[in-house]
């Protein structure tokens, strides 16, 4: 009820963001139904113009661009989402543990994170992707399968990005750990698990949820960037970053095809950022 009330006061930018996110989710979930052709099927000649059958034409192998765009929603967003969740599980857990235990565990974890963060993320990602390229097997999760290259990508980026989650989770938890109720729980003799689950987590959800949005955007853009460089998601998986790369040359002829997947990426990040901005604004009580 309270949530609905706050929803009603959301600014237009936040509404715009929420609607866009909803549309993306629907497209990603029902890609099979919505897409006119399959993800990898060669349906016609190369580089066909936009027409009634191929609304956005065909690509360099003669695949339907619109269909690939639709499947791309599932792949690109799915990979970024999986990465962000993994990064939060890893970084969040470690950050909360470091804040609660303090002492040498906190020192060691924090120094490791400092070192990893001393290397720019994109550069480190390139380095690790070179090293681990082609090492991960394709896996099948039953409901979906992940190509080896995508798996490597997810693991590498989740690992690198978890450092930032660690810092935030630790900082947020540090503010709560100093509260007397946590001290009371420690003095009662409660274990680490209880303190994290019952005392820290319920009180740190708001900033962590907002951060999830921001990290998602960041990861999403990083993966798109890597795919654009040809070092992220690998063919034949339909992916927006790779689609931009594959059609990049067309731009010189005034064809806006490469701008469409790029715009799809931009639109989603804008949408998420608008929603997060509203959430942060609200939780900070107008103080900016």
């Amino acid at each position: 009820m309270k949530f609905l009330k706050e929803l009603a006061t959301a600014p237009p930018t936040a509404w715009f963001g929420m609607i866009v996110i909803l549309v993306y989710v629907i497209v990603a979930v029902f890609a099979d139904i919505i897409a006119p052709f399959s993800e990898t099927e060669v349906v016609g000649d190369l580089y066909l113009e936009w027409d009634q059958t191929y609304w956005l034409g065909t690509d360099q192998l003669g695949r339907d661009v619109l269909s690939r765009l639709i499947y791309g929603a599932r792949n690109t967003v799915g990979i970024a989402l999986a990465t962000t969740i993994l990064s939060f599980l890893l970084g969040g857990t470690l950050g909360l543990i470091a804040a609660t235990l303090g002492g040498w565990i906190d020192q060691i974890l924090s120094r490791i994170v400092d070192v990893i963060m001393a290397i720019p993320q994109l550069i480190f990602a390139l380095l690790l992707l070179t090293v681990f390229a082609g090492r991960a097997p394709d896996i099948n999760l039953g409901f979906t399968s992940i190509a080896g290259a995508s798996l490597t990508l997810i693991l590498v980026i989740a690992f690198l990005d978890s450092t930032r989650v660690y810092r935030l989770a630790r900082a947020v938890a540090m503010n709560i750990v100093v509260m007397d109720f946590v001290e009371a729980a420690k003095l009662r003799g409660e274990g680490l698990g209880w303190i994290i689950r019952k005392e820290l987590l319920p009180n740190s959800m708001a900033p962590l949820v907002a951060e999830f949005g921001l990290r998602f955007c960041f990861v999403f853009l990083l993966i798109a960037g890597l795919s654009f460089l040809g070092l992220g998601v690998q063919p034949p998986t339909a992916d927006w970053g790779s689609m931009v790369k594959e059609s990049a040359t067309l731009i010189s002829y005034g064809d806006i095809t490469p701008l469409i997947p790029a715009g799809a990426i931009a639109l989603l990040t804008v949408a998420v950022n608008f929603v997060v901005d509203w959430m942060l604004h609200r939780s900070s009580g107008l103080k900016d």
């Binding site: 509260m179 007397d180 109720f181 019952k198 009180n203």
Partner: peptide
């Protein structure tokens, strides 16, 4: 290092009841 019973015997009441009670419980 203290036993549960040793911990139980010594309790604490804080100045700021606001921060001494978990607001989410």
């Amino acid at each position: 290092q203290r036993s549960k019973d040793q911990l139980r015997q010594c309790q604490m009441i804080y100045q700021m009841a606001d921060t001494a009670l978990n607001p989410r419980q």
